[in-house]
Design a protein around this nucleic acid. Structure first.
Length: 630
RNA sequence: GCGGCGGUAGUUAAGUUGGUUAUAACGCCGGCCUGUCACGCCGGAGGCCGCGGGUUCAAGUCCCGUCCGCCGCGCCA
């Protein structure tokens, strides 16, 4: 083995050699991708990060001038080689003549092997190392290092690497400092659940793993660093989703003396650069101004049911709440109940609490009854009671619907007009608690778009639709407590125009918060921060947080903000989601090298594992509920 | 915390109203083979049917519990 690597150094990567290299002596290292044993001669496709090269072990046609004895030995060795063995070879690049393989970039050439060595006789892999894999994710994650060996995965992580490099270059060129913040931080209540880290030296005390560098990056601004960025891990002990992971990476940014638009400009610059340098796509062709469109939070909720609309297709919602109120339910008992609540003043028109929404599926979609039944099951899985639907007949009346009996003619006509429904169209309705209706309708919209082929099941389909969602409310009504709570965090700056509502109508206060949306995914979000202690105090009051409470929780930040804090704001881009959307995969786990399962376990290492009582004693912890092997 | 789907050979799947020895493809092992590139041909091995309990003459199949994975809801300042 010493001869290879020490004396015979690698000359090329597999995937590099072309017709112009014919005649060269080369040394290649890599993995056996496939072997084709013809008895007298053996073909092996050798794989590394860069591609495949065909090797030929053929003692009857040795490369010119080669030691035939060596060639015979390597042929015998090749006879025993199996998939995923790690080998090295020395040989001569030669033409394939008529036997060119058009599927391979290296298909014009092959290597007439002179000598060979086996570095590692790999065991048979549990699944083939190919791109068209049907193996369950569970098995892939168990052998993640094999999964990552697949060309597709190698490509994804090359992209991820490139995004990192472009990001660093971009921010450096624009005067940002890359600065680090601690992972082990003070636990702060509220917000995402923290992972806790016990302190050995401070018995009974715990650090939290940072859910974001939020507070520290603001302190960087107070410190006068002016522009900061960091590509940083964040930790949140919340349920996983296809686009959510307990440890994830953010491109974290904070800037001083900026408006919301300054932040947008900076991030648009970054996104344009990434698309250009990583994908070779010039976003200027789609966004000639160099800017992404804006949409108000309220408008997004009304038209699409969430604050991250996928704008690659239409199928907008129609809010029927006003119509239902006007027509006192239009004859439909359920709607009548809702109308009555507005009538009695139990619900407010400007802050509804309960709504009625509809979505139209055009007749051309040819949506079958069975498929509509499937939809019903789908919405029920989200907590909806059901899915009212109506087919529009030629005369405009509704059929195949429980609503058809009760709904007044006037109401049917009004709904048809509002939704633009025509003969043969299918109308879908949701009504009741606003949050649920919005969730159900928003998910239904995307589900249907995929079903109807408006967007692909997986990936971007060549379309990248960016959007800034802006002007959301500062406060949200907490469903359980009925009190106002910060929708983002308590340090978001209210808009000057809505300061007057802080005391008299908190629900109407809009703020400088913004989300960057791409194809229905929130890929980033941030805000302009509150740096005025006076307004800060009013916000805390509106939240029902006493001065003492505020001091106890955020004292260090409040102090800092009173010691020369510049106006500042920032944003964090979800690095993993960005990579996912860019590389056209449908799961965050595909772009995280060593991902965890939905329950937060590492299928490769089995983490987390129980520890001994001795280990626990050292950090002053005793386990209560589940048994722990001592 | 809740709902849905799934777990059968190394992998992906089939397995009927409960009924002989649990199938298939790929992979694996052995043999043959000089132009393959998803090489081909012949032969062979391989099973805790996730785990535990129950019903039954008989359970991969029915019932109860449990674990694991995936998708979604809640949650995610």
């Amino acid at each position: 083995m010493a001869r290879f690597i020490d004396e015979l150094r690698r000359t090329h990567r597999c995937g590099e050699l072309r017709g112009t290299d014919i005649g060269k002596e080369v040394v290649l290292f890599g993995w056996v991708d496939t072997y084709r044993d013809h008895g007298g001669c053996v073909f092996i496709d050798l794989r590394d990060r860069e591609g495949l090269t065909q090797l030929v072990f053929d003692p009857n046609h040795p490369p010119e001038g080669a030691d035939v004895e060596l060639v015979k030995q390597s042929h015998a060795l090749a006879d025993s080689m199996r998939n995923e063995w790690v080998i090295g070879i020395r040989g001569i690049v030669r033409s394939r003549g008529k036997n060119v393989n058009p599927k391979l970039p290296t298909g014009e050439i092959e290597i007439g092997v002179i000598e060979a060595t086996v570095f590692n006789k790999a065991e048979t892999p549990p699944f083939p190392i190919t791109d068209d894999l049907t193996t369950k994710e569970e098995v892939r994650l168990q052998y993640r290092y094999l999964d990552l060996r697949r060309p597709k995965m190698q490509q994804i992580f090359k992209v991820r690497h490139q995004i990192n490099q472009v990001t660093r270059r971009y921010f450096d060129e624009n005067g940002f400092f890359e600065l680090e913040t601690p992972f082990m931080v003070k636990y702060t209540p509220g917000g995402a659940r923290n992972f806790l880290v016990p302190s050995r030296l401070q018995p009974g005390s715990f650090y939290a793993l940072a859910e974001s560098p939020q507070l520290y990056k603001q302190l960087f601004m107070v410190a006068g660093f002016d522009r900061y960025f960091q590509i940083v891990k964040c930790f949140r002990d919340e349920g996983s989703r296809v686009d959510r992971h307990p440890e994830f990476t953010q491109i974290d940014v904070e800037m001083s003396f900026v408006s919301q638009d300054d932040i947008f400009n900076a991030m648009e610059g970054l996104i344009f650069r990434i698309w250009k340098e990583v994908l070779g796509i010039d976003l200027k062709e789609h966004y000639p101004s160099g800017h992404f469109p804006h949409m108000k939070f309220e408008e997004s909720m009304r038209r699409f049911g969430n604050d991250k609309p996928d704008l690659r297709f239409e199928m907008e919602h129609t809010d029927l709440t006003e119509l239902v109120i006007e027509q006192k339910g239009g004859g439909v008992p359920f709607f009548g109940e809702i109308a009555a609540k507005f009538e009695s003043g139990k619900l407010r028109r400007d802050l509804p609490g309960e709504i009625v929404k509809a979505m139209r599926i055009p007749a051309s979609a040819e949506f079958s009854r069975a498929e509509a039944d499937k939809l019903e099951a789908y919405v029920k899985s989200m907590g909806a009671k059901g899915l009212a639907r109506a087919k529009v007949a030629e005369d405009g009346s509704w059929t195949q619907s429980p609503l058809s009996k009760s709904a007044s003619k006037e109401f049917v006509a009004a709904v048809n007009a509002a939704t633009g429904a025509k003969t043969g169209d299918l109308l879908l309705f949701q009504f009741g608690r606003e949050a649920l209706v919005q969730t159900v309708m928003a998910n239904l919209r995307v589900y249907l778009a995929k079903k109807l082929g408006l967007i692909p099941e997986i990936g971007h389909g060549g379309k990248f639709n960016f959007l800034w969602v802006v002007d959301p409310p500062l406060f949200e009504l907490d469903d359980e407590t009925g009190k106002w709570a910060a929708a983002h965090h308590a340090f978001t700056r209210p808009q000057e125009g809505s300061l007057e509502f802080l005391e008299k109508d908190p629900g109407k206060v809009l703020c400088y918060r913004y989300d960057l949306v791409l194809n229905g995914f929130e890929i980033g979000g941030g805000s302009i921060r509150l740096h005025d202690p006076e307004v800060q105090a009013r916000v805390f009051r509106a939240l029902g947080i006493s001065e003492e409470d505020a001091r106890a929780k955020f004292g260090f930040l409040l102090d800092a903000l009173q010691r020369g804090a510049p106006p500042h704001g920032g944003i964090a881009i979800g690095m993993d989601r960005l990579t996912m959307l860019l590389s056209g995969t449908d799961s965050l786990r595909d772009v995280i090298p060593w991902p965890k399962s939905q329950k937060g376990t590492d299928l490769l290492t089995d983490a987390p594992t129980p520890v001994t009582n001795d280990q626990l004693a050292e950090v002053h912890i005793r386990i209560v509920a589940p048994e722990n092997p001592g």
